[in-house]
């Protein structure tokens, strides 16, 4: 299987590549639009600051490529957030795949949320063989509001969308590559998508 991880300079993607290796899949890091279009599966990662990540995406013109992809795409963490309509982090527009907005957690809780939290209301083949209230590892200061495309929710400060799906696009706020067995199962499920 031809799996690519979009490499646009945003954050640590080595651990993601290793997570696929552990599943026996060689995931290629690339910023080449042709390679991305030709892949069977595309992973869109991202950590760090939203507006600078979006700037890097625009510099490489990948902001125009990603929304046109037809194969399964998995946005992770900031990758998921950039697939939403907008984010208050740097007040920018996202790629508009997911019809929801990203906002910052309130000061009623520690920010960033850092650690293992549960995912509930699981509604997609992405969660096959993953039980309700499975633990996933997250580290983030901003969250996506729940909408009709929400396929998992998590409680921190409030209930937010910890996973989203629209057609061939999937997004998860947590880091499956760092979430033990449940996270590995999710990556396997993603690889099994048609």
């Amino acid at each position: 299987m031809n799996v690519v991880i979009i490499d646009y300079g945003a954050g640590n993607i080595k651990s993601l590549q290793f997570a696929f290796n552990r599943l026996g899949v060689e995931a290629k890091l690339t910023s080449n639009p042709n390679e991305i279009r030709a892949a069977d599966k595309v992973v869109f990662p991202g950590v760090g600051q939203a507006s600078s990540a979006m700037e890097m995406l625009k510099n490489s013109k990948l902001d125009l490529v990603i929304p046109t992809l037809k194969q399964p795409v998995l946005g992770i963490c900031l990758g998921m957030q950039l697939l939403c309509n907008s984010t208050t982090e740097g007040d920018i527009n996202g790629l508009g795949i997911f019809n929801t907005d990203v906002k910052e957690f309130s000061t009623a809780v520690k920010v960033p949320q850092m650690g293992w939290n549960t995912i509930t209301n699981l509604k997609s083949e992405l969660f096959n063989n993953i039980k309700e209230d499975a633990f996933m590892y997250s580290v983030h200061s901003y969250y996506a509001s729940i909408n009709a495309q929400t396929i998992a929710t998590t409680q921190y400060d409030l209930d937010y969308a910890s996973a989203l799906k629209h057609n061939n696009f999937y997004g998860v706020q947590f880091h499956p590559e760092k979430s033990g067995e449940a996270g590995a199962q999710l990556l396997m499920n993603f690889l099994a998508l048609n």
Partner: peptide, 10 residues
């Protein structure tokens, strides 16, 4: 690098 290859927690 070797730890990252093997370990699936942060």
């Amino acid at each position: 690098l070797k730890v990252a290859e093997r370990i699936n927690i942060p």
